[in-house]
Each structure stands twice: as C-alpha cells, then as structure tokens.
Nucleic acid binder design. Structure first.
Lengths: 295, 295
DNA sequence: CCTATTGCCTGACTAAAGTCAGCAATATGA
DNA sequence: TCATATTGCTGACTTTAGTCAGGCAATAGG
C-alpha cells in the first residue's frame, strides 16, 4: 500500500504536471486537452464530455473558443440532429500535429538520459502498471438484464459464441430466460471499465437444488486481467449467500480458456445434468457457506 | 516511446485526477496540498514554497486562509527571525490524519480488486517506474565550483571520503585546486534531482597530456540509477571535445564500487602517475575523438 | 552603525475553471 | 399526437489559481 501511495504522489504529480504545463502551447490547459481529445478523427460532443468529465456548459464554451480560433468545426452529422460532432479544421489539425510531436519529445526527454536496458525496463514496468491499474478499475455490479450495458454484454456474448461454436449459436435455444435473472430468482452481474461494459455473468437460483452459473463473458480488451475470475467468485459468493451449497454450469468444448478457469478454481467435471444442445461438459463446485457473508 | 506516452496519458491523468478530487475534503486543491505538505512535523515556509513550487505571495495567502480556519499556526521559530515555520494545530492535525486515512483508502481501493499476485506485481512495477523516472529526472550541468550546489557536493564528497578512508581525508592534501575547475582549464559538473544536488564530477585539462577526472561523487539517494556512469561519460565527452586523447584518474582502495565502474566502462589500471597520498590505484582510458561532437 | 539582502506579507490585479438555471431543438414511447 | 426525456447552447454568475509591485522586519557584511 505504501508503494501505491508513494507512486501516486511522486509519479502522478511530477509527470502529470510536466505534461500539463508542457503540452498547452500557450493555450489554457482545458482547451489544449479538448483539442487533443477531439483528434484527427473528430468526436461527438457527448463523448468528449464523458471522457474529459466536463460540465456541458463549460464544454460548449470551450468548443466555441476553439471554433472562434478557427481550430475546430462543430456540426450535426448523422442521424440524430441533436448529437453534434466536433472536427478539426486544417489549422486545428496542424495544431494537433504539433501537440503530437511535442508529446513525443516529452516522452523522449524521459527516455533520453537512460541506458538502453533502463529504457526497456521502464517501458515494461509502465505497461505493467497500466495493465494492472486497468484491472483494478474494472467495476463489478449487479444490473437488470434489460439495462443497456447488460444488453450490450449479452449481444457480445452471443456474437462471440456464434463465431466459435461449430454450428453457430442461438441464445433462445440455450434454455436461459434472461429476463428471469433478477432477485430473488437470480442475478446478472456486469463488469464495466469507465462506464464501458467489459464482462458479465449470471446466476440462476433453484431453491433446494444447486445454483447455476450462465452467460459468463469477458471482453477481449480485458482478458488476462482476472476479470473472469472475479465474476465467478462474486457469483459463487452470492449463490452461497442465497443458501446454495453447490454451483454447477455447462460449457462448450470450444471454450478452452473457460474450461481451464473452471478447473483452476475448484470445479470438477460431472455427467450431464441438462440437455443444453450447446453443452459438451458439465462442472460442479461445492460452496463454503462460511465464506458467503464476506465482502 | 509509445509506452511512455500511453502511460503518461492514462495513468497520470486518471490516477492524478482521482487523487486530486478525492483528497481535498471540500477544500481547494492548493490548500489541501499545502496542509498535507506541512505535515505533523511542521515545515518552514521556504521549504513549502520550493516543494510546492508556489509564488511567495500566493503561498502566504494560502497560509493565512489555513490559519483563519484554525488549522495551522505560523510563527518564527529558531535562530533566524525571518524564517517562519508552519505547524498544524490540533484541529489541523486531525484534518491531516483524515487525509492520511483517505490516502490509505484510495490506495486500498486500487489494490482491493486484485489478487495477491497481481498486488505484488503492481507494487513491484510501480517501484520500478518510480525509480527509473527518478533516474531520468537527474539533470547534469556544468557549474562553477563556487556555486552553492557545487559546494554542497564537494562537502558531501569530503565527508564521505573522510568516513571511508582509514586515515580520514583532507581535501587540501589531495592536490586539486577546486577553483581551477573552470573553462578553459577544466569543468565541474553537478547532477541535480529537482534542484537537490545529488552528484558531481570534475575534469582537469592538461594540454598535451591526458585529461584527469577528479571528485566524482554520487549521493546515496540515487545510487544504482546510473548517475555515476552518466557523469563519467559526460566528462569523457568533454575531455575528447577539448582535444584530449586519453583520460586518467586515481582512486582509493576502499572505493570498490567506483573501481568496479571504472573497469566496467573501459578503464584499465596503470602505474602511479602522481603522488596523491590517498591513491592506491591509477586508471586510464583512451578516448574516441570521433564520438566527441555528439549530443 | 550603515547598507544590502533575505524572507515573508499585503493589496490589487487578471485569467482560468467551474456551476447553475433556463431555453430550444430533437427523439422516443405510449 | 402528446407528454417526456435527451442533447446541447447561452448568460450570469462564483471560486480558484496565479502574478506583480511594494513594503516591512530581521539579518549579514563590511
């Protein structure tokens, strides 16, 4: 913990301040950041607002200033007439390129005094910090299966299975009524990374019988960060809290990473307990009721 | 380089923003930072000014506000009546404790979702990034030997040698006229880490003869970061640029790390070329004139 | 003892950042 | 079609941050 605190103080403040003062080009920080965030591809105003976490009024005013300086054009593009899109003008693009170059210079000024091996170590350590920090920012919350984030996950889940299973995948045939995944009959968990859905998992409770885990999916963007493991653990915790003494699940033989995860976390294979047409393997795991109330 | 840029953007901004918004307790950021920096031990106003890099007037005003809130007391303590010292009152100390606790919580919120092995990896990677970033912030500049930072280095150098040599160390007997270490007869380099002197090295030019390296010292706080190596390389570069084709140096047998560094960077031992009473070993290294103009 | 310097404080600013309420245009769902 | 929500814009603020010049008291140096 001391390492984290120390890191936050020294690295974050020092490097952050460097970045902030160096990459503004005389412009106020907020304007420079906005210009940078719009980028060569342009961006919707709403996206900018969430990404930079700005007040709608303040953002609008900043856009007006950049527009006044001839760097940016805001226009309504595409279907919804309320949604406005900011694009860089030629001048704006040139400015952006300068910022890009300066960003490179700044990075180089950090690397320049280091030896080759130090540079390699720094890059490696930075990537590792970034990755693990990302992992720790993944938030796991129960949501209604009809919630937009939940729907997005279920769509991604179905799309992925359809691509991997030999004969495609039709969610309707898999024997899960997604709408039923709400208390007290079950729960649907969604993992998000800064509001972006990146994973999910469902628990179906059958009083007097083992609870059942379904619809576990993790986005490619966060695989290897332990999100799947966290989802499973939380589902098991909730199953135990609801009084189940066992969980079980079925899976397709093409999902080898998932099968590996199940085995690694205490599941063992059992004979078929249902007739899910997509299932090739069935697993079970006993729950420890004492562990349930934790968290 | 991409790793550095990416890291700067994502980690620095995200974590930094978290820190800044979370650790203010409704107070403006600058006030909160100042309160934190004063700390339970108190601090001199001048120290605060350099550490937080604030305008004297602004800092004074911030102190007045904290004083008005009953969190801080500023009084002249100790010898120099101009130097004022800020201390926390009981209320201020309580506030500081809250900040301390919240800082812990923030760190924990990052670690909590991670597995034990991930936590260990994160701590390791953070420490590595911090260390290497520190190394890259060390600045190496020529200074007049009479400059305060240079004097501080020479004092630290003498103090260290006095502690390590069997018979103590008297700079006057070592045959170096420190005032002569200025162009065109020589050069004195000082390494600083955010204005703090952390290392030095001198070059004495003898036209027609080998240049001589003297007074190489690196503070304990930055050892192992390659600062010594950088000082040596820069001295050699300047020697070559001044036309020398060889450098040489003498050293004491108790300075084993230094001897290791000399051997590792291309020096080989030669017979005594002077009668320095503190020297046991003499080294030389041929210079590559082609490399001189670089940088 | 006179003078310059150092360390801090104060007043008078400016600029940037951020907030809030209300408005207009457009979508959406019953 | 109509009520309701969403999206963004504008004007009118307040608060923070930061700068600069001038001034006073304590101290160091001759």
């Amino acid at each position: 913990m001391a390492a984290v605190r120390h890191f936050n103080r020294s690295v974050t403040q020092r490097v952050g301040a460097l970045d902030d003062t160096y990459l503004t080009r005389g412009r106020p920080l907020a304007q420079a950041r906005l210009l940078w965030e719009i980028g060569p591809a342009g961006a919707e105003v709403a996206t900018l607002r969430t990404r930079l976490n700005l007040d709608a009024g303040y953002l609008s005013r900043l856009l007006r200033v950049l527009e006044g300086d001839g760097l940016v054009l805001v226009g309504s593009a595409g279907g919804d007439g309320r949604v406005r899109t900011a694009r860089l003008t030629a001048t704006g693009r040139a400015e952006w390129d300068v910022l890009d170059r300066m960003s490179d210079e700044l990075a180089w000024s950090i690397l320049e005094p280091l030896s080759d091996s130090q540079r390699a170590r720094l890059a490696g350590a930075m990537a590792e910090v970034e990755r693990l920090l990302m992992a720790s920012l993944v938030d796991l919350q129960p949501r209604h299966p009809g919630d937009p984030a939940a729907r997005a996950c279920l769509r991604a889940y179905a799309r992925e299975l359809a691509g991997r299973f030999e004969g495609g995948f039709d969610p309707a045939r898999s024997g899960v009524d997604e709408e039923a995944l709400v208390p007290p009959n079950g729960v649907f968990l969604v993992a998000t990374l800064s509001a972006e859905p990146v994973g999910c998992g469902a628990l179906r409770l059958h009083p007097g019988e083992p609870a059942e885990i379904k619809r576990v999916w993790v986005s490619k963007s966060v695989r290897g960060l332990g999100v799947g493991r966290r989802i499973m653990a939380e589902l098991e915790r909730r199953a135990a809290a609801a009084g189940a003494d066992t969980v079980r699940l079925d899976t397709n033989r093409t999902l080898t990473e998932a099968i590996g995860l199940y085995r690694a976390t205490g599941y063992h294979e059992i004979p078929a307990y249902n007739d899910n047409p997509y299932a090739h393997h069935w697993f079970t795991k006993p729950l420890d009721p004492a562990a349930a109330p934790s968290r």
